[in-house]
Write a protein that binds this DNA or RNA. Structure first.
Lengths: 221, 221
DNA sequence: GCATTTTCATACCCATCGTTACAATATTGG
DNA sequence: CCAATATTGTAACGATGGGTATGAAAATGC
C-alpha cells in the first residue's frame, strides 16, 4: 500500500505478461493436475524456461497456488456478474449453469472445474490448497445466497428452503457438473441436470406451466 | 466361471490377503492421490515389498484401478442396502447421507469420496480411470432412482421432479459433500447440507412440521 | 557510453520415480 | 528327501522429477 511508484524498473524488462503466462500455467495444471504436471510441461505450455518461471512466480507449488487464485477470483467475479445481471432467479440459475457447463466441457473434452478437479488430492496434506478450495466454495455459496435472498426480497416466491440452504444446493449442482464432466458425461446430460436443479430451486417463470427441456442458444461467447 | 478348482496352488503360498492389501493400498491412494503416492508409500502401507505387489496386482496403474473398483463395488453395494432397508424415502436419504459423511470425514480429517477425490485429475487422459469414475456416478444415480421410483410406487408423494432427475440431484449432493469435506468443512456443515437436500427431495414425515437439526446416533458401525 | 540491474538461455545437480533382475526361501507332489 | 514352483527380500536399473548455478543479453540511470 506504500509503494505505488509507477514503473521505476531497472534492468532488462520481462518478455512476457505475467497474467497471460499464469493462464497458460493454469491450463497445464487443469489437464494434468498438480503432481501430474512437470516443470517441463509448464515450460512447454508457457514458452518460458525454468529460471524465468521461478524468478517470476516462485517454485511449482507457488505457481499452482497463484493459478488457483487467479481462476477463483476471475470465476467468482464472472459468476457474480451473471447472477446479478439476470432479471429473475430462474434465469440467473440457467445462465450460470450454462456458463459453467461451457467452461467445464472445454474444447470438447470434459475437464470440469479447475479448482474442484485438481485441488482435492492436494488439499488433504496442503493447507494452502485446502484454503483455496474452501474459498472457492464459500464464494460460490455466498454469491448464490445473495442472489436468492434478492429474489425473495423482490417478491419471487422461489424455494422451500431458506436462502443459505438453497444456495448450498445450487453450489452442489456445480460440484456435480464438474465431476460428471470429468467422468465423460455429455453436454446434454449436464444440461439436463442443470435444468432439473433450476426447476427444483426456482419456480416457473410466472406464465404457463411448460417445462423447458432445451437449453436454448443465445448470449453466446 | 469354468475354473472353480479349490486351491491346487503349487509353490510358496502368499503371506498376505489380497483383499486386505488392496484396502491398505486404497487408503494410501486416498490420502495421496494417484500421482502423489509412490511405490514406497504403498510398500509402507501394506508391509509388502515391491516384487510382491507387482506379482500380485501388476503395476501402479493396475493397482490403483483395482483399488478404485473395490471401493466402487463395496460402496455401491452398501449404499443400495441402506436405501433399500429404509422404510421411507426421507429416512433412506437421511441414512445414506449420514453414512457418506461418516466415510468422507475419515478419522477426523476430511478425505471425501475416494473415487471423486482422486480420480478426476487422471480421468482426463486415462480412459480406464474415467470409466471407473463414470461407473461410480452411474451406480449412484441408478440406486437413487430405483429408491425414488419405489417411493412413488408406494404412494409417497415426494418430489416435484421425475425419479431420474431427482436421483441426479441426490447424487450431486454426495459429490458436493465429498468436495466440501476435502475443503475442510465441519461435520455440522455437511449434515446441514444433507438435511437441506432431504427437505428438498423428500416430503416431511407425515406428522408435524418440525425440522430436525440433529443428525442423531444409531445404526452405528 | 559505461556501470548497474534484471532477465534470459544452457547446462547441470541430486533425489526420487516406477520397474525389474537375481538369488534366497518356503511350499507342493512324489 | 528331492525336483518343481511360486513368493519373498535386496539391490540395482534407466528415466525423470524439481530446483539452481553460471554467464550472456538487454534494458535503465547518470
Amino acid at each position: 500500500m506504500a509503494e505505488t511508484i509507477p514503473t521505476p524498473r531497472r534492468g532488462r524488462p520481462r518478455s512476457f505478461d505475467a497474467h497471460e503466462v499464469l493462464q497458460q500455467v493454469q491450463d497445464a495444471f487443469w489437464k494434468g493436475g498438480f503432481e501430474g504436471t512437470s516443470i517441463d510441461d509448464l515450460t512447454g505450455a508457457t514458452g518460458l524456461n525454468r529460471p524465468s518461471l521461478y524468478g517470476a512466480f516462485g517454485d511449482k507449488h507457488a505457481l499452482y497456488l497463484q493459478a488457483l487464485r487467479q481462476y477463483r477470483e476471475s470465476t467468482l467475479d464472472a459468476g457474480r456478474q451473471i447472477l446479478e445481471d439476470a432479471p429473475t432467479l430462474r434465469t440467473a440459475l440457467e445462465d450460470i449453469y450454462r456458463a459453467a457447463i461451457r467452461i467445464y466441457m472445454g474444447d470438447d473434452d470434459g475437464r470440469g472445474c479447475f479448482v474442484s478437479s485438481t485441488a482435492p488430492p492436494e488439499a488433504v496434506h496442503d493447507t494452502s490448497v485446502r484454503r483455496e478450495l474452501s474459498a472457492m466454495n464459500d464464494g460460490l455459496d455466498g454469491h448464490f445466497e445473495a442472489r436468492i435472498a434478492r429474489a425473495q426480497a423482490e417478491g419471487e416466491v422461489c424455494t422451500a428452503l431458506p436462502p443459505d440452504e438453497a444456495a448450498r444446493i445450487a453450489s452442489a449442482v456445480l460440484h456435480s457438473l464438474s465431476v460428471r464432466a470429468r467422468a465423460g458425461a455429455s453436454k446434454r446430460a449436464l444440461h439436463a441436470l442443470a435444468q432439473s436443479a433450476v426447476d427444483l430451486l426456482a419456480k416457473a417463470p410466472e406464465t404457463g406451466s411448460e417445462s423447458g427441456s432445451e437449453p436454448g442458444n443465445s448470449t453466446g461467447g
